Computed example of a mutant assay.
Amino acid sequence: MPAHEKLNYLEFPAVAPDATKAFFAAVFGWRFVDYGPDYTAFEGAGMDGGFYRAPLASTTDKGAVLPVFYSSDILATQAKIEASGGKVIKPLFSFPGGYRFHFLEPSGNEFAVWSETAD
C-alpha cells in the first residue's frame, strides 16, 4: 500500500522509449509494461515510475532532479552502463561519503551512481 504523503512514482521523458527500456532492463533488471506507444511503466527500480514519449531530456544543467543509484561495485556498474549504450558525462570522482559518476541513458536523461569505495 502506498504511504501517505510519500514519494510514490517518478516519470521521465524519453526521446527513444524502446532504447531506454532495453538499457534499463539490461543494466538494472527493470521490468516494463507498455500503455500504448507513448508510455511505458517500470518496476523493480526501488521506486516505480514511467517514461513518456517527449522530445526532451532530464539533465541537471537544465535544473532537473538527479536520480542516484547505489552500487556495491561501482566500476562493474559503470562497465554495464557503457556496454549497454549509456554515456558517462562526469567521470568517477570522490565526494564526502564516497565516489560517484554521472551518465546519460539512451534518451538523454541524466542519472548518477555512487558507492562508498571506488573498487
Rank of each mutant, 00 (worst) to 15 (best):
Y35H: 15
F42G: 03
G98A: 05
S58C: 12
G44H: 08
L10S: 09
L66V: 01
T59C: 09
D61C: 06
K62F: 01
I89T: 15
I74T: 06
L66K: 03
A57I: 07
K62S: 13
E11F: 00
Y70S: 14
Y35Q: 08
E5R: 13
F111S: 04
P96A: 10
A79P: 00
Q78V: 05
S71F: 03
L10E: 03
F93H: 12
P37M: 00
D61N: 10
S115Q: 02
M1S: 06
T20W: 04
D119E: 13
K62R: 13
A25S: 13
Y99S: 05
Y70E: 15
P106I: 12
F32A: 08
A26E: 15
A112Q: 06
S58T: 06
Q78H: 00
W114I: 10
A22G: 09
F28W: 10
P55V: 08
T77D: 02
E105T: 02
L66W: 03
A76M: 09
A64E: 03
L75N: 06
F103K: 01
T59Y: 06
L7F: 13
A76D: 03
G36T: 13
G63V: 05
G108M: 04
P2G: 14
A3F: 09
P106R: 13
K80G: 07
F24T: 05
P2T: 15
H102W: 10
H102D: 06
S115G: 14
A25D: 05
A22Q: 09
V88S: 01
Y99M: 05
E5Q: 10
Y39W: 15
A76P: 01
V15P: 01
K62P: 04
Y35E: 15
S72R: 12
M47R: 07
S107F: 04
N109A: 00
E105G: 07
P96Q: 03
A16L: 12
G97E: 09
A41S: 10
H102S: 14
Y9G: 05
F23Q: 01
L7A: 11
G108H: 05
I89W: 00
F32H: 01
T59N: 05
F51V: 01
D73Q: 04
T77I: 04
D48M: 11
V68L: 08
K87V: 11
G108K: 06
A112G: 07
S84M: 01
H4Q: 14
A57N: 12
A22S: 15
A45N: 06
A26W: 02
Y39P: 00
A45Y: 15
L75P: 10
T60G: 05
M1E: 12
P37V: 09
A112E: 00
I74N: 02
F24V: 02
H102E: 11
P106Q: 10
